[in-house]
Amino acid sequence: MIIQKTDAEIAIMKTNATLVSQLLAEVAKVLKPGMTTLQIDALCKTFIMDQKGVPTFLNFHGYPFTICASVNDVVVHGFPNEKELKDGDIVSIDVGITRDGYVGEHAYSFILGEVSDEISQLVKVTKEALYKGIEQAIAGNRVGDIAFAIQQHTEKKYGYGVVRELVGHGLGKTMHEDPQVPNYGRRGTGTKLNENVVLAIEPMINMGKKEVYTEEDGWTIRTADGLPSVHFEHDVCVKKGKALILSDYSLIEAAEKTNSNLNIAYQLA
């Protein structure tokens, strides 16, 4: 069932989405080589508790951490661990907060230090594709319009692998509501979008092939060919004429600029 939110519910969800953006901005301020993703997990849990929220991911279907920390060839659902991050790593942090009965959750991919032009382009194009998809999240369009826009900008234009097994989704009182929002598809197909439906739009794009596999922990999903993957995600409310983005990447981008350990050259290209 697809649930249209009231204006009051959307206001709560926007507050929560912005809190997640603020949290990811805090991560952006301190992220550096030598840190571990377990340290980031602890930082995020403390922030969420300080905001009188509940970590949405923690214990979700048994998931044992506050964040998903996916590095390099890990697409999504990476377990935080004690391995030190290093220059050249792509670090995708996905995190959620539940507060006042509603979920805010989204993801951002950071670059540590110097990387090849090919990796910089992958990050840039994946982030661009997110906004291409959001442009289609307007009342009267269909889910396939979002999917088509993302696939066209990544797979068709650049030859990247668009992951099939993982999709975006509706968002509300729970983290996964209807409809599912794939990153591949045909225009004019799928569920019709009504105003005030909230979606988590999240391209997961591989540098190489689209195929992935799940590790023995039952969560960590890696690219089959070992090449890097990038993940960006926004919380978006469907509106007439133009979608309303509930999360706020400007907070994260401003924090990135203060941290010399982070490579933001892709934003300037």
Rank of each mutant, 00 (worst) to 15 (best):
N194I: 12
M204T: 06
T37N: 04
I205V: 15
G144M: 08
A129L: 01
L24Y: 04
L38W: 07
K210H: 13
G172K: 12
G88V: 04
D41C: 04
A17F: 03
G168P: 01
V27I: 14
E211Y: 13
N206C: 15
V125F: 01
V20C: 15
S21K: 10
S21F: 05
I245C: 02
F60I: 14
E155F: 13
L262F: 06
V27G: 05
L130P: 01
Y184A: 14
L193G: 07
I2D: 07
E253Q: 08
V27K: 03
I138L: 02
P64C: 10
G161L: 11
G168Y: 10
S92D: 02
G188S: 12
F57V: 10
A254T: 09
V167E: 11
L122W: 02
P228V: 03
I252P: 02
H234Q: 15
L58P: 06
G104Q: 11
T36A: 03
F148M: 04
E195Q: 15
R99D: 02
L122G: 03
T66C: 11
I138W: 00
Q39I: 02
A243T: 08
S260I: 09
V74H: 08
K257Q: 14
V54D: 09
I201W: 07
M204S: 09
V75W: 08
V115A: 00
S260K: 08
I2C: 05
R222L: 13
A42C: 01
L38M: 12
S229C: 14
L251D: 01
D41T: 06
I10T: 09
N81W: 08
